[in-house]
Design a protein around this nucleic acid. Structure first.
Length: 155
RNA sequence: UAAGUGGGUUGGACAAUCGCGUGGUGUUUUUGUGACAGCACGAGGAAAGUCCGGGCACCACAGAGCAAGAUGCCAGCUAACGGCUGGGCGGCGUGAGCCGACGGAAAGUGCAGCAGAAAGUAAACCGCCGAUGGAUGGUUUUGACCAUCACAGGUAAGGGUGAAAUGGUGCGGUAAGAGCGCACCGCGCAGCGGGUAACCGUCUGUGGCAAGGUAAACCCCAUCUGGUGCAAGACCAAAUAGGAAAACACGCGCCUUCGGGCGCAAGGUGUGGCUCGCUCCUUGUUUUCGGGUAGGUUGCUAGAGGCUUGUAGUGAUGCAAGUCGUAGAUGAAUGAUUGUCACCCUGAAAAGGGACAGAACCCGGCUUAUAGACCCACUUGAUGA
RNA sequence: GCCGAAAUAGCACAACUGGUAGUGCAACUGAUUUGUAAUCAGUAGGUUGGGGGUUCAAGUCCCUCUUUCGGCA
């Protein structure tokens, strides 16, 4: 119950902040994104090519043995996820679906540390041979990396 | 019981927590493509490859000709098919069964390396022969006979090479030979019988036997195919550029009741091979305000649907009745974690592992991938009664 | 999703109308040189992407699978 109330407070706070900080006219979506509630609404996704290009234009790269993240601060109180999974690297549709679902699941469970960032997830060749648990662990590892860099950027 | 053949079914179940998409319900909100609550539903037998066939949409409700392509024993099924079912023929297998682009070479053109005498219409060459004719010699009863030559000729048996060489075997026959004659086998044609037909025959007659291969070479014959594809198409509509629609007049000729009508010429547009045909249009004035990119909405899922029973049929399938039944995303949902149970595999145990694979307008097929599990029918062998 | 193109030696490419798979570079051996390069002479290297079919004979014709590349918003 406590967490819910705090989240509401945060949401209200973001509501008040949002119109000032927002410069993109495209982002007029709902701003009551609950960071603690582990849900995954449409507002937290990158949807249009414009948004993707915006991330790619001025981005920081965080790489791992399995994943590659492209990160950019989005001036929003919540994170947004974009998936760029190449057919060249994962030719089978089943493989691509599994990687996408894993990425969404991991993102959904760790939204709070990522708040204020747009993240585009890229893949590596040969990912289909790695099991789910190690992929999730390496995803978390990258999230911690981003958290540390977050403090640096704040300064 | 072992090996096998054909066909079919299935492609783990349940629960908890956290999530996602769509639909409709309620509450909230100025509105909503928002939020919240709870409900329902949410990948496959191949969803795959995109190899065929349709539906649907637009372009003439789809036209003509040429080109191009596809199919190809017969009959049926079907919306249609290159699919399926049944039958015929040929091949493989002891068998259950399996495989087959399986029309035409007597319309024409072309092709066949090397080897071989010769590779296509019938001959030449090497051979064989010396009956008949001829030359020479001998014998002679002066009728002729014998020998030699290989000149005219007669042959196509033999040439062992090739993937392929102009019916096969045997006997007769002959100078040597030859379907030259005969017997059997094979083949063609006609009749008869069976079959809807393809085709078949212990049938009858007839022909001495013609017509080599290749059409997944060109080609001929028969049948079929218009093009583009949901990124089709329809609607709303920021931006940007200036035009768009309607009415009237309008190039040349003819007619005219002076309103107009008909024909001709040139160019463009759409039908994505070409020609024709068809559609809309060409330049000026007036009036009206539309047109359309980004983006969005729609098309978007109930359909040649599944299952059961009955019935017609050998069968594919048809008909009738009953019953079941909401996937519709669009940077793209259908998931993650945990637990219990069941089956199988590895392992002494602990434990570990569980096939191929993900809808994108929708159907019917084909092809390809697939851990296993189960069911039915049949064949062959062994053993026992 | 839809539509198309290609695959030949280590690499880049040929091979006509089915009839012995070649060319250049690279590799190896020898000669030349004190030695190397260059040059000259020679050699080897191919399941023609896999499988099946037609044919006497398939890189070529037909079917199917695999891989790679491209176009359409």
């Amino acid at each position: 119950m406590d967490s819910a109330s705090t989240s509401e407070q945060q949401a209200e706070a973001s509501k008040s902040d949002a119109p000032v900080s927002l410069k993109d006219e495209t982002v007029e979506l709902a701003l009551e994104v609950c960071l603690d509630c582990q849900d995954f609404p449409k507002a937290t996704r990158l949807l249009s090519p414009k948004e993707f290009q915006h991330v790619f234009a001025n981005a920081k790269k965080f790489a791992n043995r399995h994943w590659t993240f492209i990160v950019r601060a989005n001036e929003l109180p919540y994170p947004r996820l974009g998936l760029a999974i190449a057919k060249k690297q994962l030719p089978k549709a089943v493989w691509r679906n599994r990687i996408k679902r894993l990425a969404r699941e991991s993102f959904r469970q760790h939204k709070q540390p990522l708040a204020g960032y747009d993240i585009v997830v890229l893949t590596r060749r040969g990912m289909e041979q790695v099991d789910n648990q190690t992929l999730v662990n390496s995803f978390r590892h990258l999230i911690r990396k981003i958290e540390r860099s977050n403090t640096k950027e704040a300064k």
